[in-house]
């Protein structure tokens, strides 16, 4: 507001103007403090926020059935199902590096060891508290199973075991499968399996960065 106009006005009008200004100021303050609430909880969706629009009150919506996002066609049967021509594959869909194996070990310890134990003998903490005991990975049947079987069990679940595809992304599931293979080998490995000139560390190699991004 232009102050000059105000001061040139006759007294009563000036009083009125001042009162009006005061009112506007108080009003503005009130609106600002009301805005604070609006700014704190803005009418937008943050992950998992309750929605009053959808009947099930979920703001997280499933895509319309049949929708395929770019890059998610999942047309690589081996990578996404672990199967080739309907049979569990004995091949990996991508080459495993040492870093992949490390990540496999880390993911295995997070998602599988509660039941299967870090050793793989099926005696994890949750089993000790009463969950059905899974078979040991060292059973001949599982030692002979193709690697696609492990991927498949994680992806679809198996008997009493739930599926882990929603918790573990697909590439990590393959890394876990590869790590289980390595665990199985630990039981039968001999000193002569180590190539000449290579020393085996007494501790497992987890230090250093495992690849963080998942496929």
């Amino acid at each position: 507001m232009d102050m000059r106009i105000l001061t040139n006005m006759p007294m009563p009008a000036r009083r009125f103007k001042q009162a009006a200004l005061l009112l506007v100021a108080v009003g503005a303050l009130l609106t600002v403090s009301a805005c604070r609430e609006d700014m704190q909880n803005q009418p937008k969706y943050v992950p998992l926020r309750e929605s009053s629009f959808f009947p099930d009150q979920r703001s997280a919506r499933l895509p319309v059935e049949g929708t395929i996002a770019r890059g998610q066609l999942e047309d690589d049967s081996l990578l996404y199902t672990g199967k080739v021509d309907g049979k569990e594959s004995a091949e990996l869909p991508f080459a495993m590096t040492a870093a992949d194996m490390q990540r496999g070990r880390e993911r295995y310890n997070i998602y599988c060891s509660p039941c299967h134990s870090q050793l793989g003998d099926g005696n994890g903490m949750i089993v000790q508290r009463g969950f059905k005991k899974p078979p040991s990975y060292f059973e001949p049947r599982l030692v002979q199973a193709p690697i696609g079987h492990f991927f498949n069990v994680m992806t679809r679940g198996y008997g009493a075991m739930a599926e882990y595809s929603s918790q573990v992304p697909v590439a990590d599931r393959w890394r876990i499968a590869a790590y289980i293979r390595a665990l199985q080998l630990t039981q039968t490995a001999k000193g002569t399996d180590v190539p000449a000139g290579v020393t085996v560390a007494s501790h497992a190699p987890t230090e250093g960065e495992a690849p963080k991004e998942a496929k």
Partner: peptide, 24 residues
């Protein structure tokens, strides 16, 4: 599950509880 890769840490869905509480 998403704490390493996204802004949101993720709150487990019911199914995650049921991985164990289907039997416990």
């Amino acid at each position: 599950t998403t704490v390493e890769v996204s802004g949101f840490a993720g709150i487990p869905p019911t199914r995650t509880c049921m991985n164990c509480h289907s039997q416990i």
